[in-house]
């Protein structure tokens, strides 16, 4: 045990008030998760309503577990008529699920790059705050093809690198008329994209919340984590 604490050596980071509030009373291991949600115009109708309901249920379900509340650090990036950050990283219980509205094009590549940047920045903060963290998880849920040119290639390279180096876990979920060939090129070869059955966002988010609960409460190396079965929402190829 240290007899003297060299605080000046430890603090070379400036924390905003919000960040300090996030770490000062919670030094538990964090499990950062980003959802990249495609809310382009094609999602309008029952799909977006299902997605919003799923998100709300997800939040309630995960926040019911004390350890998940301390560990799960969720951010949401949307692409639909531009790239939006529907939720910055913050504790799951302090998050009022947004009502997302479907509109516009699908800047998928840019949205993935935004998510990857946010993850890097978040990891830097964890390190400066002295908070251990698990490998980040990135979920992409999309129903279309990117409208922002070749940006997705850059994102795909970063995702594949991250997966190979065990620095990232990536999941792509295609909805309806999604471009599965392209999603397969973004995904690591070992984890091809999954196809959502109809608009079963409810079942998908139930799976997501039990996966995230397991991820954040199992107290095991995330590599050894067994995820719940996906048969409730995955369409057979």
């Amino acid at each position: 045990m240290p007899e003297k604490r060299d605080l000046t050596g430890a603090i070379d980071a400036e924390f905003t008030e919000l960040e300090a509030a996030d770490f000062a009373d919670n030094l538990e291991t964090r499990c950062p998760v980003v959802l990249v949600l495609d809310i382009s115009a094609s999602m309008d109708g029952p799909a977006i309503a299902e997605l919003n309901d799923g998100l709300a249920a997800f939040q309630a379900e995960v926040a019911a577990d004390p350890l998940a509340r301390l560990r799960l650090d969720l951010a949401i990036v949307t692409c639909g008529g531009g790239i939006g950050v529907a939720k910055q990283f913050s504790p799951i219980d302090a998050f009022a699920p947004p009502r997302l509205e479907a509109a516009g094009d699908t800047p998928l590549g840019g949205a993935l790059l935004t998510a990857l940047d946010m993850l890097e920045a978040r990891k830097r903060l964890y390190r400066e705050a002295g908070v251990p963290y698990h490998r980040p998880w990135l979920f992409l849920i999309s129903d279309g093809a990117p409208t922002d040119g070749e940006l997705w290639r850059e994102a795909a390279a970063a995702i594949q690198d991250g997966e190979t180096g065990k620095k990232l876990a990536f999941f792509a979920i295609g909805v309806g008329g999604a471009d599965f060939d392209l999603l397969a090129q973004i995904s690591p070869p070992t984890k091809p994209p999954l196809k959502l059955k109809g608009v079963r966002f409810g079942a998908l988010f139930r799976w997501l919340s039990s996966s995230m609960r397991r991820l954040s409460t199992a107290r095991i190396d995330p590599d050894r984590l067994e995820l719940p079965p996906v048969d409730g929402w995955v369409a057979k190829p």
Binding site: M1, R5, L7, G9, A10, G130
Partner: peptide, 20 residues
Amino acid sequence: HLPGLAVSPQRPGPFAVGPN
């Protein structure tokens, strides 16, 4: 790698209350 040991590659975190 206990934070606070002279030889450790970890330093005590800025928000952590130490054993003192």
